[in-house]
């Protein structure tokens, strides 16, 4: 099959960029989207041009490295997958695709489709953890955790930190990412002592990084390769308001 690509090219963070047209001809429907980009890159190299830069590593939807807007949809048209799990059989022969990097003030473009998602790490550093220095741990089965809670924690913990939620959100909000971590840790008994501190610090950091707000468009859940529910955002808001209340009331 043949595809026409319009790919965002930008040599470095401070340079202007633009869409460039490339043809991917004779590609196989069994190829992944990234393998198609590999092929386009091989072609560029043969013509002495600079290949398209894009982040990727595991190529099986778990590391969260890859990510791009494919025809206006984060990670492309297939639900519940990262760009690396998208196979060309999901496109029509002859289709034209626009490929752009994640766009958000907090995710500056470094080159072509590569963006800097360091803000996510800083949100985690602000509070996305349970303080348990090595060696302090009690016996693992000492605390019983209902399966329901542990499953719910896992539902949120599957976040791969890809940034598609931010990219898809009309406001560029990192709410889903942040809420997923708040929900994961807040669901578990181990996470209770730091629950208030955590949500206040993480939300504060999120705002500091210039992400937008959540006004409930729901695009993030749709784009999320792990289909994390926007219910986690509601939960984060509840935790946040309660934590603020407790702090204000000196409780």
């Amino acid at each position: 099959m043949d595809l026409v690509l319009h790919v965002w090219r930008q040599p470095h963070a401070d340079a202007p960029g633009g869409l460039q047209r490339y043809e991917a001809s004779g590609v196989s429907p069994d190829m992944s989207f990234l393998e198609m980009l590999d092929l386009v890159n091989e072609g560029l190299l043969e013509r002495g041009e600079i290949p398209i830069a894009f982040d990727h590593d595991c190529r099986e939807g778990i590391c969260g490295s890859c990510g791009m807007m494919i025809n206006g949809v984060a990670h492309g048209p297939l639900r519940g997958t990262a760009a690396c799990q998208l196979y060309l059989r999901n496109f029509r022969d002859g289709e034209t695709l626009v490929v752009e990097p994640w766009r958000a003030r907090a995710f500056p473009v470094l080159r072509d489709l590569v963006v800097d998602r360091g803000a996510f790490d800083r949100i985690i550093a602000a509070g996305g953890f349970i303080t348990a220095p090595t060696g302090h741990a009690p016996e693992a089965n000492g605390t019983l955790i209902p399966k329901r809670d542990s499953d719910a924690a896992m539902d949120a913990a599957v976040c791969i930190g890809c940034g598609a939620c931010v990219a898809a959100c009309p406001n560029g909000s990192a709410s889903l990412f942040t809420a997923a971590k708040v929900a994961h840790l807040g669901r578990l008994p181990q996470g209770q002592p730091e629950r208030d501190r955590r949500v206040l610090a993480m939300v504060a950091r999120m705002d500091l990084e210039h992400f937008g707000n959540c006004t409930w468009h729901g695009e993030c859940q749709e784009a999320c390769p792990k289909e994390i529910s926007i219910d986690t955002i509601a939960r984060m808001n509840r935790d946040f308001l309660r934590a603020q209340w407790r702090r204000a009331s000196g409780d």
Binding site: H210, F211, H217, E219
Partner: peptide, 28 residues
């Protein structure tokens, strides 16, 4: 809110297809 959200994405997308956002939500 509007100011923050607009600043959140200074450069927009050339192509963008909302998947589930409603007209009501987008036109608040």
């Amino acid at each position: 809110l509007l100011a923050i959200d607009r600043a959140g994405r200074p450069i927009g997308y050339a192509k963008r297809k909302p998947q589930v956002a409603t007209l009501a939500g987008l036109t608040m």
